[in-house]
Design a protein around this nucleic acid. Sequence first.
DNA 1: TGTACATCAGTGAACGCGCGTTCACTGATGTAC
DNA 2: TGTACATCAGTGAACGCGCGTTCACTGATGTAC
Lengths: 205, 205
Amino acid sequence: MPKRGYHHGNLKQALVDAALKLIEEKGPSGFTVAEAAKRADVTPAAVYRHFEGREALIAEAALQGHRIFGDLMEHAYADGQPSALAAFEATGRAYLAFARKFPGHYMAMFESGLSNQINPDLALAAARSQGVLEKAAEALSEHIPADRRPPASMFSAHVWALSHGVVELYTRGQPGAKAPFPAEDLLESGIGIYLRGLGLIKPDS
Amino acid sequence: MPKRGYHHGNLKQALVDAALKLIEEKGPSGFTVAEAAKRADVTPAAVYRHFEGREALIAEAALQGHRIFGDLMEHAYADGQPSALAAFEATGRAYLAFARKFPGHYMAMFESGLSNQINPDLALAAARSQGVLEKAAEALSEHIPADRRPPASMFSAHVWALSHGVVELYTRGQPGAKAPFPAEDLLESGIGIYLRGLGLIKPDS
DNA sequence: TGTACATCAGTGAACGCGCGTTCACTGATGTAC
DNA sequence: TGTACATCAGTGAACGCGCGTTCACTGATGTAC
């Protein structure tokens, strides 16, 4: 536990953490500077010692999220190697696992309406995780005969879209929500069928 | 053009239309009662002659959206008949077409955070469009040998998720957005590969 | 057709609230000597 | 080790603003006779 007297010790991170909790609870637009400050036991004005404003705080939360996300994707990819197929599947699963485990980060990254271009660090971190999936797709596409091989960036876009859709529709526990299957199963089976469609899995395995 | 004197003529719908435009422009949480009133050339207080409050206005917008959406899905389904495959593919395309053509409605329906349970009419209208896709999936699943036939509600969930993901990620024209392929092509090809994976399309056709 | 009146869709002013942000300040901390 | 001082992370009060909503009201409309 960090010290706490008049000076906080690590207020910047405490504010980011508070913002993440708030975003998780009420969505990106339900989050307010004042409430984040309150949760960090600090006056609203103190926020401006560490951030230019509300948007900068959200951007920092998103940045941290992209870094974690990128790491997870890299590890998933590495664990699946040397099988191109296993690596590709693992990155898909990592997407959902991240959304589950870091919902505040996820929302800051993908649902806040914040542009990644706001800040070069953010743009870089965002590009990195996307790059991992594209790399995995690239390796996978080499297992398809060259004459009828669709572009690898298409695979990654498909899986990214499917993953995102599953998260948005079947992961949010809205009251009265439809949840026919666990999201993990839905994504796993969806990707499985998709890969079979690409001819990368045997029809009956 | 409706008359306009002291009385508006059709203020209720004018407010819904204004709300839809605003939501389209600034997102569901960027929309305000005051601005919707202004766009309809009316005092904010007038809104309360027709709606209980802000939320009720959004709910009405979402309701109208679900009705249009349901109709589109039904028509797409009917046009694809009697081919189960064509009908299924058509409903997928209809999803994206709706999101393109009625972005305000789409956002009110799927991005406003509004629960469909708020209002029985809304719940009904929302269930209807989902039902069409499920019906299409049901018919399709009968073309798969019964012993290795996954549940039809899974197909519809997969396609729904893929469609939603494509809309969210590749349809919103954010500055600096990644748009490797037209969303329509992405969805079309994704569903194609998926259906091949189900064994419903010939590998090389 | 003309008048009296009920209905009701709008107005305009006001409310309390919480927001993001600013400012001069003060108290704690760390460093130089 | 002790004192003087610069640094700086926090405070507390205040700002202007736009929000959703309420209220008593008024002017237009439609109907009964």
